[in-house]
Nucleic acid binder design. Structure first.
Lengths: 131, 131
DNA sequence: CTGTCAATTGAACAGTCGATCAAGTGTTCC
DNA sequence: GGAACACTTGATCGACTGTTCAATTGACAG
């Protein structure tokens, strides 16, 4: 019987399997920034809310039962990573998801995290558009 | 000419547009946990490395020029969120991406963050498998 | 121009996170 | 069994993050 140790991890193997940096460090840092911004439950809730359509800060704060300032700060973080759009409308400023890519990321993660238990029907307009 | 204020954000509108919680709070928290784990550049680097195939901790540490313990701690965070798989092989413990879903999330974010500048060819085996 | 509504900003404080070190577990080889 | 290897764990500590409060900006109505 042959040795059954190290079929994939012998020292010489480590040398042989030189791995190249596939992705530029800058890209990794930008992606990490996006994930970090989404990696906070209150902020992620906010994104799912925006996934249903644009809202102004006041409306969001009312829906979440939170302070205006708190919501504004959360939106600032999301905006710094380019995850939300912003446009003024009279006295109000309307926020929304920045683009389809953000909606996809959101949709994929939520679908996975809720393992089919969620009703994402209202997200329909934002679902990944394949062909 | 009608007033052009508040076409989408009048007070009565706020009341009318009651938004339902589409996603269970638990799902949001799990998704946030996943994003948080991925929201750190060193950990995200680690995931892209594992995207090229399984590695043992020693190999990873050598590739990253980091301490064994540091790598182990990073892997622990990723493991707590179910992002990586682990199997023992002789003296070594091999880590890999947990499933296709993690690979998809990773791939999508990196593709977006590098805006076509990256060479993701070696990720081919992990690319989103549509139909 | 003044007051008011909508939202942002800066500062401060508490809570959380990540790298490191030292000590521990589990596995193989002799 | 015991030494050596591969990795994990717990504790510590500095750095970062999120919320809150107070003060500020910007837009609009009168």
């Amino acid at each position: 019987m042959p040795k059954l140790t190290d079929p994939a991890c012998a020292p010489q193997d480590h040398l042989a399997r030189q791995r190249v940096a596939l992705v530029h460090q800058g890209a990794i840092e930008r992606a990490a920034g996006i994930f970090r911004a989404m990696g906070d439950a209150p902020r992620l809730r906010l994104l799912t809310l925006l996934g249903q359509g644009e809202s102004c800060v006041t409306e969001i704060a009312a829906a979440e039962g939170e302070d205006l300032s708190t919501i504004s700060q959360r939106l600032r973080v999301l905006r710094n990573e380019g995850l939300v759009s912003r446009r003024r409308n009279g006295k109000h400023i309307l926020y929304g998801l920045a683009d389809q890519h953000v909606a996809d990321l959101l949709f994929n993660a939520l679908a996975h995290a809720s393992e089919g238990r969620a009703d994402l029907s209202r997200f329909a307009s934002l679902n990944p558009t394949k062909e």
